[in-house]
Design a protein around this nucleic acid. Structure first.
Lengths: 218, 218
DNA sequence: CTTTTTTTGTTAAAAAATTAACATTGTTAG
DNA sequence: CTAACAATGTTAATTTTTTAACAAAAAAAG
């Protein structure tokens, strides 16, 4: 009758696999748009600059099984990945800091079909408060507790100046946020029931610079 | 006489160590500004959300040795990290795509003392070409080859729309760039003598969402 | 002066992530 | 019909990364 989809324990999926699943899905959505119905592991691999084995292994972990010699069914796989990494009714996100980076993120997301919706933004600049950017309303930091509760927002993206990082993180936690993505160059502290991800653009650039230098002295 | 600094083989430093060194330095620079002369491994660790052992191990790998019970000399360590991850006379960087993200990056960097300098930006929008943003001149994509050669630019940061990613990457490679940092959600291809680093904000956000969801079903 | 504490530096163990090896099986070619 | 091929799925090995364990030594306490 129904396919016996063995109950995958999402809890034990490697962190790196989670990241890749998100990326696979993005690539697959493009394929789907182009009318491609099936895809081979080595095709996915090439797009992501990884090996085909790794793709197959990741898919094995989520219990997806393709058809021999035809590859994976694009739309099925998209759905399965969604069932794993998406939350049931979607998750609402807020951006704190409507500077260039904040606006860049909103534009990135607007128009993307996704279970993640950016429902609010916050800033201290009175010129921005009360206005709407790409459909996202901007509120005062003062109103954070209220808005986050009202809109049932679970994740906060921090794109404020480094100097404000610590206090903003604290406010987000206080407001009841469950995950923070910190784009500030300043590491912040959160209680351990809040998931924290930090990304620092300068580090990435310095890393590229290092390997460029290495290549030269080779 | 001179300290016998054993020749560290930078080539074999773990990738993750390189990233952390960059972050240590940033934290250390702040300490230095605040007049702090020494720092313990566990202090660095706390800032970076890692363990003290890992800090000590990283420093061991670069051959730095602190003073027992006093910790590490902040400015010495900053210099040593610099001697490892910085290139001698600095490296010049270009940003392609002067949208919100491109401007965010320029602002991030302007005013930072660093051996990395953003020397040029490129865009297709005629309103932006010929102007200067935070001291960085904006050129037409057409002039890329010429400018990159003239300014001796080695690294390109891609902040263009996804649709332009592939062609921009190709142009950068053609122009002789040695490293690319791709902020586009679209993976690109480069020859293997060009170092490529890709970062995708949507993936990061989806990852946070996943772990937030997991925490709830716990 | 001796003991305890605290911190570094390093080796060893464990854990996480990637890659290799290979069995399996439709599909195609002869 | 049979052999060769090309793809998946999975176990095993390898590599990378993190963490633990502990010796050594300066400083502080008694």
């Amino acid at each position: 009758m129904e396919k016996d989809d063995k109950p995958i324990s999402m809890k034990h999926l490697p962190h790196k696999t989670i990241e890749r699943l998100s990326q696979y899905r993005r690539a697959l959505l493009i394929c789907l748009d182009q009318g491609q119905t099936h895809i081979y592991s080595h095709e996915i691999a090439k797009i992501q600059h990884i090996t085909a084995v790794q793709v197959r292994r990741d898919l094995m972990l989520i219990g997806y099984t393709g058809t021999l010699r035809k590859g994976y069914n694009v739309s099925e796989l998209i759905d399965l990945i969604g069932s794993i990494i998406d939350a049931g009714e979607g998750i609402r996100v807020a951006i704190v800091g409507m500077g260039n980076l904040g606006r860049a993120l909103i534009n990135y997301f607007s128009g993307k079909r996704s279970r993640l919706s950016i429902s609010a933004s916050f800033d201290t600049n009175p010129d921005k408060i009360g206005r709407t950017m790409s459909g996202v309303p901007c509120y005062s930091l003062e109103d954070m507790n209220e808005i986050i509760a009202r809109e049932n927002i679970k994740i906060g993206i921090m794109t404020v100046p480094a100097a404000a990082a610590l206090t903003v993180a604290e406010k987000l936690v206080q407001a009841g946020i469950k995950g923070i993505l910190n784009y500030t160059p300043k590491p912040v502290y959160v209680p351990k029931d809040v998931y924290l991800e930090e990304y620092d653009m300068i580090t990435s650039l310095e890393k590229v610079a290092f390997y460029v230098k290495m290549q030269e002295v080779d």
